[in-house]
Computed example of a mutant assay.
Amino acid sequence: MGSVVKLHGLPMSTNTARVIAVLNEKGVDFELVPVDLSPFGQVPVLEDGDLKLFESRAISKYLAEKHSDAGADLLLRRGGRSLAESATVELWVEVESKHFDPAISPLLYEAVVKPVLGQATDEAVVEAKAAELEKVLDVYEERLGKAKYLAGDHYTLADLHHQPYLFYLMKTAKAELVESRPRVLAWWNDISARAPWLKTAEGMKFP
């Protein structure tokens, strides 16, 4: 028996939820420890034996690689799949990180986090970031007209990495950014109904 994986973070944190979602997809038992050990003051931090990792996307990819035979094929590497298929996953993972995240993260900080902290939302920031997010989602709407999921016909990390932020977005007035795009909405309805995600979302409640 190996040591139990420990994940240091907070379940309502989008970055922590991203990693929990992968653990749940892969059926990996883990211990959630509400402590921040990152040298950059970030959560989550994963401890797997002697290995310690931070940065949620790096952790997600590590877990998807290590547990490649369990659960969903999140990197499209199984069964002699082509290099092109796995490269498409990497492409859309990068799109999430470089285009989607910079738009939606500040929007949700203003619309969701600040009110929890008792601070006033800067509506100008919300509107500016919503305009950026619209452009990204327009690209997604076109892409999802050609494939069921961002990387093709199968659910992968490219989809999973979007779920924590979209979960919170859909609880705000800016949910209309998704709801007004039928293919993006159908994609969200699909990926948000996955049993591992529903398990993840149970913990995503602010106190």
Rank of each mutant, 00 (worst) to 15 (best):
A131D: 14
Q42E: 15
Y168I: 02
L63Y: 03
A87G: 07
A21G: 05
H99C: 13
L117A: 10
I59H: 01
R77G: 12
M204Q: 10
R77D: 10
G27L: 08
K114N: 11
S86P: 12
L46K: 06
V126T: 02
K98P: 09
R143T: 03
T172Q: 02
S3G: 11
K26Q: 08
K205Q: 12
R57C: 02
V22Y: 01
G2P: 15
L133N: 07
L83H: 15
D73M: 01
K26A: 04
I20N: 00
A130H: 10
V4R: 08
L10R: 09
L157I: 04
Y165T: 05
Y155D: 00
M12W: 14
Y109Q: 07
L10I: 14
A21C: 13
L91K: 15
L108I: 00
K174S: 14
S180M: 10
G9S: 03
A193N: 12
K205G: 10
M170I: 00
L157V: 05
P11K: 01
R77W: 09
L74V: 07
E179M: 11
L160K: 04
V19L: 00
D138E: 14
Y140F: 13
H162M: 08
L108D: 00
M204H: 06
A87I: 07
A111I: 00
L51F: 12
S180H: 12
D48G: 11
V22K: 00
D190W: 09
A195D: 14
D69W: 05
D50W: 05
F167R: 09
D153C: 04
V116G: 06
A147D: 15
D153N: 10
R183N: 10
N189D: 12
T88Q: 13
E141K: 03
K174V: 05
E141C: 03
S192H: 13
H162A: 04
V95H: 10
H8I: 00
L185C: 02
M170V: 00
L150G: 02
P106V: 04
V35S: 13
V178Q: 06
A201Q: 10
V43D: 01
A151M: 07
M12P: 08
K61D: 14
E90N: 10
K174W: 15
L37T: 07
W92D: 04
P102A: 07
D159C: 02
S97Y: 13
E31I: 11
L10H: 08
V33F: 08
E179A: 14
F100W: 11
S13E: 01
V19W: 00
A72G: 05
E123G: 05
F30R: 05
E179K: 15
E65T: 15
V4P: 03
T88F: 07
E47G: 10
I191C: 01
T121V: 11
A58V: 13
K146P: 07
D101R: 09
K26C: 03
V19E: 00
A120I: 09
V93I: 15
V22T: 02
W197T: 05
N24D: 13
K129S: 02
G118P: 01
T88E: 15
A21K: 01
K148W: 11
M12Q: 15
H67Q: 12
E142W: 14
A186W: 05
S3F: 03
E134S: 14
Y165F: 14
V125G: 05
L107I: 02
